[in-house]
Every structure is written in structure tokens, then in C-alpha cells.
Amino acid sequence: MTSLTWISQKAWIWSFVGAFVVWLATALYIGGAGGTAVITTALSFATFTVIVGIGQMFVITTGPGNVDLSIPATISFSGAVAMKIMDGSNAMLPIGFAASMACGLVVGLFNYILIRILRIPPIIATLSSSFLVLSTAIAYGRGLKIKPPPLLAEFATARLLGIPVLAIVIILFAVVMSVVLNRTMYGRSVLAIGQNQRAAWLAGINVERIRFYTYVLSALLAALCGFLLSGFSGGASLNMGQEYLLASIAVVVIGGTSVAGGKANVPGIWGAAMFMFLLVTMLNTFGVSAGIRLILTGLIIVAVITIAGGDKPPR
């Protein structure tokens, strides 16, 4: 019974189990050393999903109805602005990074203003701000493709003992964010608000300030993702954020965070991001056609979520 309780409390385990099973199937199919290459590739790409996933997790954890739909637009916007300002020059790196963070800050502030002052539900507020942000990116960049500074490109694709450096950095970052979530005033407040906003308020938590921090954090992480992704894939493009809308939400949910809020965990995001990438890789490797691939992706995700959420401890 204790082991069952343990597992049910660690919902994130299932995302890792899923990722491992899918990887094993792929590695056996390929045979030889291909399996290791698949893992390192998955690490490279999962990194970006994890960055935005962590931001999305904090937002979702603040309770029902909270979700950040402006992440893809912020990724494209931040990437475009940073690339244009740096214009491929190493010397401009700090300024480009600052500009990218400023983009995130502005979007986060704007989202919060819509939600708080205009009292627009977060899902609508972030959706409408994403239109504004993407339009700004389009007007600013017009699909511009400027090469990232060599130093940034090198850093984003560098490997240490075969492991992507960026992945190591983001794993450390995830550890830090896990501590922030579980051990700091801010993280605990986020969880408390998600469980019961009124109770949290009565307990003396400044609900609005915490919510403000959360939306700004999510936008900042999206901006960071845009900055690094541009370095990784050789420049910014208008639709580079597109696939991170559903991915950011999916990794949060598959990772074992409650969509209803108040219950979150960071490690699950890594497991889920690896799982999502490996799943597509496995189906591609098997040569499954696109239609069947989408059906299987859907079914497998449903299966993992069901198993992960299936054995809740009886109350």
C-alpha cells in the first residue's frame, strides 16, 4: 500500500516511464548505437518545450481558467526582436538578450493588465494579446531571417561529452524552479491560490501580486525560449512558436500537474517533453503514415494521462 501511495503521489513518474518505453521501442527497432543519438536529439529539442512548459505550469497551477495562450507569439516576437538587434554580432549579445527579456516583460505586463484591470478572463486576454504580439512581430520583422551571433549559435548547439549543454543548463534550471515551487513563499502561494483562492487570500497572501509575477514569469520564459531557439535553429521565423502552444499545455498535463490548479510538479515536465518528442520520433521511425501517427499520438497521450491520474489516493 505504501508503495502504491508513493507512486500515486508522484504522478510525474508515468511521463518518464512513457518516455522510456517509447525510447526502448525505437532503440530496439533501429538497433546499434542509434538509440543514444535519439536520446541526445530528444534532449536538445525537449529543452525548448521544458522552458515554456515551466512557465505554463505556474500559470495553470494558479487555478481553473488560468492559461497562457500568448506563449507562441511571445516566442516569435522575442526571437525576431533579438535577432534584428544583434544582427549577427557577438558584441551585441547582452543587448539582444536584454531586448528579448524586455519583450517578455512587456507581454507579461500587458497580459496582466488585461486580466486585472480590464477583468478579461485569462484565456481570452492572452489569446487577444497573442494576436497583437504576433502582428507586432510581423510588422517588425516581415518574416526576417537574420543569422544569430556565432557565439549564441555555438552555445545553443554545443555538447559536453555528447550531451547538449543547453539541456544541462535547463535541467539545472528545472531543479531551481522545483525548489521555487515547493520551498519558497512565492511557489507555495501559487499552490495555495490554485487550491482555494479565497482561502489563500484570507490567509494573507497577496493573490493579485502572485498572479502578476506568474504571468510575467511565463512571458519571460517564452521570450527566453524564443531567444535560444533562434540561436539553435539559425534565426527567427514568424511561425517558430506555433507548435509550442499545445505542447506547453500538453507537457504540463502529461507531467502530472493538475489542470484544475493547486497541484504541480516540475520534473514531470521534463519527462513529458522527452515523451512527446520520442513518441513522434518512434512513429516516424516506424514509417507510420501521418493520419495514423496523429491517431496514435492522441491515443497514447490519453493512455498516459489516464494511467498517471488513475490511482488517486482514496480520501
Binding site: T26, Y29, I30, G34, G35, A37, V38, T41, A42, S44, F45, S233, F277, V280, T281, N284, T285
Partner: peptide, 11 residues
């Protein structure tokens, strides 16, 4: 494309 190709290349 980069993501998809990187994923399938090892196989």
C-alpha cells in the same frame, strides 16, 4: 523540419 529530421536521422 529541423526537429523532425533530427529525430529520424539516427534510424
Amino acid at each position: 523540419a529541423q526537429k523532425a529530421v533530427a529525430g529520424i536521422l539516427p534510424s
